[in-house]
């Protein structure tokens, strides 16, 4: 009996240890290592800053504008940037790099996107901005005016989505609360 119980006690103690060990290792793997494996970390080709004085003075729509046909231009094309940066304007090494590597070679910058949506999604910027009460950009985007350098772009290796890509439930939720149409074809194409 005694032997038995002592075996039991010993096994309970060390068993608990094994259990904890397994739990901790799995937790560390699941919480810390797995995300590192899942997401690739990429840097923007140019460390563009929205917070720089000259940029911060601009309205968002100066560079991220609507075209006449109602479509949204999204990330600016080289054309928009060259309006100011035809030649190097200041001391910033990133600007110099930008002018030398892209402007002078007339090559589009391969910017990485934080809010990339798959091709079956139709997100209408007009529906959220060209309305009576426009949503602030920061409802969905980072407050970029505070960022000195762009954060690394963390892309999910499995899905191709960015770490912060908005999922459908967020859209649906807001639509439901605001009484907006939640039919599939409002956002899917």
């Amino acid at each position: 009996m005694e032997k038995k119980s002592s075996t039991k006690g010993q096994s309970a103690g060390s068993g608990f240890l094994f259990f904890i060990a397994g739990f901790v290792i799995a937790s560390v793997f699941g919480w810390v290592i797995f995300p590192k494996i899942l997401y690739s970390v990429n840097q923007q080709p140019i460390k563009f800053s929205h917070a720089l004085e000259d940029h911060a003075e601009l309205e968002c729509e100066n560079c991220h504008f609507f075209r006449d046909d109602g479509t949204y231009s999204g990330i600016p094309k080289l054309e928009t940037c060259t309006e100011c940066h035809e030649e190097v304007q200041g001391e910033n090494p990133e600007e110099k790099k930008f002018v030398e590597q892209y402007v002078q070679k007339n090559k589009e910058v391969p910017w990485l996107r934080y809010q990339w949506q798959p091709d079956n999604v139709y997100f209408s910027h007009a529906a959220h901005l060209k309305v009576e009460k426009p949503l602030p950009c920061t409802t969905c985007h980072r407050d970029v005016k505070k960022e000195k350098i762009p954060p690394p772009v963390r892309i999910n290796r499995l899905t191709g989505y960015h770490y912060s890509t908005m999922k459908m439930y967020v859209c649906e939720d807001c639509h439901a609360h605001k009484g907006a149409n939640n039919a599939c074809n409002v956002c899917h194409k």
């Binding site: 006449d68 479509t71 910027h125 007009a126 529906a127």
Partner: peptide, 29 residues
């Protein structure tokens, strides 16, 4: 303006609803 489909799904005429979305955006702008 239209996503491609994949094996194993059903598709059909949508009355070009993507054109409606674009028309709406144009109107808003």
């Amino acid at each position: 303006d239209v996503s491609t489909r994949m094996r194993g799904v059903v598709e059909k005429c949508t009355f070009c609803s993507h054109r409606l979305l674009k028309a709406k955006d144009k109107a808003r702008v």
